[in-house]
Computed example of a mutant assay.
Amino acid sequence: MKVIIVSNCVTSTYYEVVQTLFPDWTIKGAGFNEAERWLETGEKPEFEKYLKECDLYIGWPLDGLRLASALNPDAERVIIPELYFRGLHPDVAMLDGFWGPFSEGAPHTQTSLIALGARAIGKTAEETQALFREDVYEKLGYFDLYKTDRSRLVAEFGKYGIGLQDAFDYWETQRDFFYICHHPRSFVLVDIARNALKGRFLDEEAFARSESLRRTQPDRLAISEVWPVYPEIARRFGFEGGFTWLKQPQYAPREMSLSGVIDIIFESLGRMDDAWKSVPFIAECAKTLESV
């Protein structure tokens, strides 16, 4: 069995899980952006050759992609959509072109919605820091987002035959099971891979046995960035939370405080023109914060 796995930063974990479950398979993995570029430029003809020979594709939806035309049309497909969950980190926002707290030589667009909204209405850094509290989270709908984002994620993966309801119940016993919205702990990816293969390549007995991988799979994303679960949000789920961001460039991990993150965000916004203030989700947040 020749297998190709294509996703984003979770590719290596999916690769390792599938390789552990099926040690006799020949498996190759590629990041989505790299795979599309290789096909566009022809710089890795061996990759396109392998796609044409594949028996099984595991990865992102293929609609409209170069991957679809290069892949063996007879290959089986196990689609695993992009994983993104804001339930534990509802304050995370994405702003195009923004150099955020995790930027390292290139824009890293993740930022704080509260900081954006506060800056838009002229709050100082000190005033902004004071907005990180329970009543503000309530007004912004942060506590409601967990339920709606869980339902969205379960439904989205369910479209591809991946049942996550029971898996989610387990994840919720493991405290902060996402480092940041797109980076889960390894057991989350183990469960997604297991459930994606269940009923097609894993029978009930094999699926049950594979649960042990939750405890043995290395946590590859633990060395990446960490956005804290704010204390008032964490308490709703029975753990402590905090206000320490962790930036982990190679060989030099660095902790950042709430005040430090706000300073970085404000400095970055100061280098941009004011067009960011008109972004709808920022304008809406700013309007809410005016009434706090």
Rank of each mutant, 00 (worst) to 15 (best):
V3H: 01
I4L: 14
V6Y: 00
V6W: 05
V10Q: 14
T11E: 10
T13D: 10
T13Y: 01
Y14I: 05
Y15R: 06
F22C: 08
P23D: 13
D24K: 14
I27K: 06
K28I: 14
G31Y: 03
F32D: 08
E34Q: 12
A35Y: 02
R37C: 06
R37L: 13
W38F: 04
T41E: 14
K44L: 05
P45T: 07
F47A: 10
E53V: 11
I58F: 03
W60F: 15
L62G: 02
L65C: 11
L71N: 11
P73S: 15
A75V: 08
R77H: 03
P81F: 05
P81V: 03
R86Q: 12
H89W: 07
D96H: 14
G97R: 13
F98M: 14
A106P: 02
T109F: 11
Q110G: 13
E126W: 10
T128V: 09
T128N: 13
Q129L: 12
F132V: 14
D135F: 08
K139G: 13
L140W: 08
F143C: 00
Y146Q: 04
R150D: 08
L153G: 01
L153F: 00
I162N: 05
F168S: 04
D169P: 00
W171S: 02
T173E: 15
D176Y: 00
R185P: 01
V188N: 09
L189S: 11
D191S: 09
N195R: 08
K198E: 10
S210E: 06
D219L: 08
L221R: 07
V226E: 10
V226D: 03
V229N: 08
V229D: 03
E232V: 02
R236W: 05
E240P: 00
G241K: 07
G242W: 03
L246K: 12
K247P: 03
P249Q: 00
E255L: 06
M256R: 08
M256D: 03
S259K: 15
F266P: 07
F266N: 10
E267W: 09
G270T: 08
D274M: 08
W276I: 08
I282V: 15
E284F: 01
V292K: 11
